[in-house]
Amino acid sequence: MKGTKELLTWKEIIPGNVILNPGNAREYRTGDWRSQRPVWDFERCIMCGMCYAFCPDAAIFEREDGYYEADYYYCKGCGICAEECPKKAISMVEE
């Protein structure tokens, strides 16, 4: 999380160190931690959404066509989605 916010001056700090922008930690690229990446086999996928429900990082999103996919900006590569997929439609691939 590099940027000027890390270097706020004391005058820029809101009283009580309150943070006014909800969820602004979204800037932080947790995807950098990843050594493996989940890849979907849409032939097998039944769009059940289990991968979405079990993702600790809310890094799996539903596409417009109803299939699910990882947002690699955030995906830490834990492999839960691949482990839990009832159709074994997700495989973990080395980065």
């Binding site: 059940c48 429900a53 539903e62 834990c78």
Partner: peptide, 25 residues
């Protein structure tokens, strides 16, 4: 797409991506 309890979950998130919990937490 057949509805399941999982794909019917609310899409709204309140604890957002970018948090620094360990992998698989």
């Amino acid at each position: 797409k057949k509805p399941t309890p999982y794909n019917q979950l609310s899409k709204e998130e309140f604890f957002l991506s970018g948090h620094r919990a360990c992998q698989g937490c």
